[in-house]
Amino acid sequence: MAKLTKQDIGKLLAKQGILIAFALFIIGFTIANPKFLTLDNFENVVRSSAILGVMALGVTFVVISGNLDLSVGSMMSFSTIVVLDLHDKLGPTLAIPAMFAMTLCLGALIGILVGYLKLNSLIVTLGMLSAIHGLTLTYSGGKNMDIADKEGTWFSIFGQGNILGIQTPILIFIALAALLGIILAKTPFGRKVYAVGGNGTAATFSGIRRARVVFLCYIMSALCVATAGLIQASRSMGSQNTVGQGLELEVLAAVILGGASLLGGSGTIFKTVIGVLILGFIQNGLLLVGLDFSVQYVVTWIIIILAVWLDIAAKRGKLMSPIA
């Protein structure tokens, strides 16, 4: 039997480290609390992670293209508040497409600034985080939103309904992950996203319209954020105007955990889903073993640091090196 070298272990961790970590988390929390690995608990974790997961799917495209999107938390707050407000003014049939259109306009603005004007994505989306938060407060007048007639509307189906015994948020998450996974892995557009993130200059010289690809990635991100906002609004039938505050960091953590490189050019939808579930199961497992909710923030920070180190070290080919 061949002996594993440090290089072999490094390659294994670089390619399958996320799946190994996921298995270890499941085993560890199951030993700590047998209730962890039950069907009911698994369903609850996936359902509670659906909003974060839907947002992470769109951000995966952005990160693979070599950019960042820190505006998704504020944008989700905006989407949630808008659809709740328009629900009572226009009815759900018109409120939903109107909210999607407004959210896509925000995504298009970011796409133009980063893609066509070639501004730094970190600076642009960080600025948009504050701008959209201000827009949300202005739109809502600083007030929270609630649906007036919660019993007489079909709007709750997106966050509270179920189809064939499976909760709707889970089905939306799965369906969107499958669709975007196919787009990223099997279409010319998906290949262009990888090419632009891997080497934007080379992609441009090969005839790929880099600006257009980046623009469409931000449109994809905005579409996913609007979907998440719809689920959030439908789940609670009301919302604070800061409901998405801080989610941008959790979303980015999930995408990085899924193996999407901050340097661009790598990542998959499937592994992003695994990254989302890891965060969800960690939070759930910590609560089941009796640790305070605030500990989750510390653990999430540690996980982000480890994930970034694994990403950069693997890219340099020094994963097992003491100077990685």
Rank of each mutant, 00 (worst) to 15 (best):
A2H: 09
Q7E: 15
G10W: 04
K11P: 01
K11H: 05
A14M: 03
K15W: 11
Q16G: 03
G17D: 04
A21Y: 03
A23M: 07
A32K: 12
N33K: 11
N33Q: 10
P34S: 08
L37R: 01
D40N: 10
D40Y: 14
E43H: 05
E43M: 15
V45K: 00
I51D: 01
G58H: 04
G58K: 06
F61P: 06
V62N: 06
D69F: 04
L70W: 06
S71H: 08
S77G: 06
F78K: 02
F78A: 06
L86R: 01
H87T: 08
K89Q: 13
L90S: 07
G91P: 10
G91M: 10
T93E: 12
I96D: 01
M99R: 02
M102V: 11
M102A: 15
A108C: 08
A108G: 09
G111I: 03
G111M: 02
V114L: 07
G115L: 09
Y116S: 01
L117K: 12
K118G: 06
I123Q: 08
I123V: 15
V124D: 03
V124Q: 04
L126M: 13
S130N: 15
S130C: 13
S130Q: 12
A131K: 04
K143E: 15
D146A: 11
A148K: 12
A148I: 14
A148L: 13
K150Q: 13
T153C: 10
W154P: 07
G159C: 09
Q167E: 11
I172G: 06
I174P: 05
L176C: 12
I182M: 07
L184A: 00
K186T: 09
T187Y: 08
R191I: 02
K192W: 09
K192H: 13
G197L: 03
N199G: 11
G207L: 12
I208N: 04
I208A: 07
R209I: 13
V213N: 05
V214D: 07
I219Q: 06
M220V: 12
C224G: 08
V225Q: 02
Q232N: 11
M237G: 04
G246Q: 09
E248L: 09
V251G: 00
L252P: 01
I256A: 11
G258S: 05
S261W: 01
L262S: 07
L263S: 14
G265L: 04
G265Y: 04
G267Q: 01
T268R: 10
I269H: 01
V273D: 02
L277E: 00
L277M: 06
I282R: 00
Q283H: 13
N284T: 09
L286P: 02
L288G: 08
G290T: 12
L291M: 15
D292W: 10
D292V: 09
F293T: 13
F293P: 08
V299T: 00
W301D: 00
I303V: 13
I304S: 05
I305M: 14
L306G: 06
L306N: 06
A307S: 15
V308R: 05
W309I: 10
A313Q: 04
A314I: 01
A314E: 05
G317R: 05
G317M: 00
K318H: 08
S321K: 11
I323H: 14
A324T: 06
A324I: 08
